[in-house]
Design a protein around this nucleic acid. Structure first.
Lengths: 255, 255
DNA sequence: CGCGGAATTGAAAATACTCAAAATTAGTGG
DNA sequence: CCACTAATTTTGAGTATTTTCAATTCCGCG
């Protein structure tokens, strides 16, 4: 079952050293601010948040944003690109725990122990905003709306993972993949893209790993969905031809 | 695969109406305070927390503490007894997302949407402390240590669920059950009880549901563990006879 | 054009499930 | 306290799903 995806070693593909951006990040002008940490803040509060946000940081494809057990100091907001988070189990195998897209926050699992519980790897050349957590905590006292939204985000992270448990614990392979595709589509829709036509940013093997299935099962299921007219698949380009029936599958229709 | 455990309907086994306790709860004198929300607070801060904590509430066995989609107003700290949390998927089947024991917090998944994302049911006659969230939020501004610990707890909830994903996504049945038993034991140890001898509070079917397995698989695995000398099992009483080998199994030893 | 990683496909095998029946335990009322 | 019933658990046999192993095929890229 367990796929052994290679994690690029430290040396390979390091992040670009100190490519500090000339322009400092600006939540107000960022198209993602309604999905991200500043959601719901007024203009002046948003500026205060801006003032603590560090440099943007570029992570090349396959580069680590952070590694398991790294000390925790910052949260990260995905600005451009996609990431995966993964754990390594006691047998040394990877388990992917999530895929993150622009506007989503990374690192909240590290607050508890003060060190990162997962590793985070860029699936393509990506960019994040660094949010120093100590300074964010200071701001919480001054900007209650920020604190409340932060709690919402952590809570949503919990429900997201509960939904993953539902998927892994109680669904057949076919339904898992259908849920996965519908979920990806919905998240693109929330970002203003098509929910029915998108590019997968991860390998088949990574999808399988995340869904608790093998790469072969993913491949077979995609072929089957294609054959049955649910999807058009070419490489990583997915077009959902029959969203209604795909959602029905995701909802548990026996086929 | 999906077990259809019955959820007691509203009418059955209602919570005792307004059995308000004579004594108000006292974190300072509660044996669980080093596992619960007040962890790390000084005496005066703990008193301030005490002052907002509502009545204790008793929930009889099989009674709901809250249901899915109930509006969110309070967090709950388990004081006595055990709970399970569950979701219902689109096919109407239950998926258990966790088991909670004394000192653990319930309801954090509800902050995001303002309504409960899971239901919570008592596995035995139980008691919780109610923590009105609005008042807790007010306290956050005054007691920074409380806020920090609250963030730790939410973060730990995230990592707990990520660990569950690791279990469901990448482990064989045998390993899943071993991990489950080791985990339960560790949590009892943290509460001052034996990690090697304890009473399961849930049915086989609930264990199976949580682990993504059938009741038959759980039963067979317990019989196997017994036969192989890992455990002594009589009904819900578990005694771990060979903790080292059980942990090895949990860590992925191929047997 | 050829190389290497990624994806697809097939066949056999393993794991866990389903269905069915029996055994055990818990709960209820006499 | 016992008898009876319902609920839970165990066990067995057969089956379905998914994995494994192996062999191609496809695609991007130098």
């Amino acid at each position: 079952m367990m796929a052994s995806i290679q994690i690029a070693p430290s040396a390979v593909r390091q992040e670009t050293p100190v490519a500090k951006e000339a322009s400092s990040p600006q939540c107000a002008t960022c198209g993602l601010h309604s999905l991200c940490l500043p959601t719901g803040l007024g203009e002046s509060d948003m500026q205060r948040l801006d003032s603590i946000i560090g440099r943007r940081r570029r992570i090349p494809r396959d580069g680590h944003l952070y590694r398991m057990d790294d000390g925790f100091a910052k949260l990260y907001a995905v600005r451009v690109g996609h990431f995966k988070t993964y754990q390594v189990n006691s047998s040394g195998e990877q388990q992917i725990t999530g895929f993150q897209m622009p506007g989503e926050l990374l690192g909240m699992d590290a607050i508890g122990a003060g060190r990162h519980h997962c590793g985070a790897v860029a699936l393509e050349d990506s960019e994040v905003c660094e949010i120093p957590f100590a300074r964010l905590e200071e701001l919480f006292g001054e900007v209650p709306a920020l604190l409340r939204h932060f709690h919402r985000l952590m809570s949503q992270e919990i429900t997201r993972e509960q939904n993953a448990m539902l998927l892994l614990g109680g669904m057949r392979a076919e339904q898992r993949l259908a849920v996965f595709l519908v979920n990806i589509g919905a998240r693109y829709a929330a970002r203003g893209y098509s929910s029915n036509k998108f590019q997968l940013r991860m390998m088949r093997e990574e999808i399988g790993n995340y869904l608790g299935l093998t790469i072969e099962s993913i491949s077979r299921l995609l072929s089957k969905f294609k054959k049955d007219g649910y999807l058009k698949v070419s490489n990583r380009e997915i077009e959902v031809l029959d969203p209604v029936r795909l959602k029905a599958l995701a909802a548990g229709a026996t086929h």
